[in-house]
């Protein structure tokens, strides 16, 4: 059974008089223990897709089944519980709480779960070992490097042992070395059996995944199409620059 199954997911936005399809009848599936990358340029609808898969937003149409449960019909409260237990988010901007230490940040999802303090401590310590940050437990996010912050965020995503790790541009704000470290962490987690869904606009990073899907104008397509489209776009851009140069 698929971990994630989207069927005909549609999300529309009204922009003035126009209706824009952020997602246009998207159907896709992710199997357990898979490492899937969704690649697409900005404005392609990948953030909307991520929000829907992450249960942060509800689709206008279509059916979303997460771990055998139909999510599209769930009320707010249930969605919060689902996010807490089944999904681990890793964001581009890390999204750590600046006033809490690394330990407290990682502990937070467990607090919302109602886990007792002693077992929280155990679980946090364990997951911090996995991401290699045992020495940084008491540091605040602003005392950590970008790569370390992202690893804290990964630890926070992992601590609840979620069914799915949802990473939105996790290397977008990192230098290549830290980005490499983060990607290595993801590979490590994948090997240990975690399901990872990576959303990015970077083809090189997407290529590291087991499987790659691309999204363009709210439609999920096969990667080859996307690559050719990107080449097309690049060519257009270069010629555009040429024109500008000539014009100047």
């Amino acid at each position: 059974m698929s971990l994630i199954k989207l069927t005909g997911i549609t999300k529309r936005y009204r922009m003035g008089d126009e209706t824009v399809f952020a997602l246009d009848h998207v159907s896709m599936a992710v199997e357990p223990s898979e490492f899937v990358a969704i690649v697409g340029p900005s404005g392609s609808g990948k953030s909307t897709l991520m929000n829907i898969i992450g249960c942060l937003d509800a689709p206008d149409e279509g059916e979303y089944i997460l771990d055998g449960e139909n999510v599209s019909a769930l009320p707010d409260r249930e969605l919060a519980i689902l996010r807490n237990r089944k999904i681990g988010f890793v964001f581009q901007h890390f999204n750590l709480l600046g006033k809490l230490s690394a330990f407290e940040n990682v502990e937070l999802p467990l607090i919302y779960q109602g886990v007792r303090s002693a077992s929280r401590k155990e679980m946090v310590t364990e997951v911090m070992e996995k991401v290699g940050l045992t020495a940084r437990l008491k540091h605040r996010p602003n005392q950590l490097s970008g790569g370390q912050q992202q690893r804290v965020a990964i630890a926070r995503a992992l601590v609840t042992r979620p069914s799915l790790i949802l990473a939105d541009e996790p290397t977008g704000n990192l230098d290549s070395k830290s980005g490499r470290e983060v990607m290595d962490t993801f590979h490590h987690l994948h090997k240990m059996g975690n399901t990872i869904l990576l959303i990015t606009h970077n083809n090189r990073i997407a290529a590291e995944a087991q499987r790659m899907l691309s999204i363009q104008d709210g439609k999920v397509t096969c990667p080859e199409d996307y690559l050719s489209m990107e080449r097309e776009a690049e060519r257009r851009q270069t010629s555009g620059t040429d024109k500008e140069v000539r014009g100047a």
Partner: peptide, 16 residues
């Protein structure tokens, strides 16, 4: 606001 968003994303319910 952002903090509230983060807390909600990681599983805080409205009542929390």
């Amino acid at each position: 606001t952002r903090e509230i968003g983060i807390r909600k994303a990681i599983g805080a319910r409205r009542t929390d």
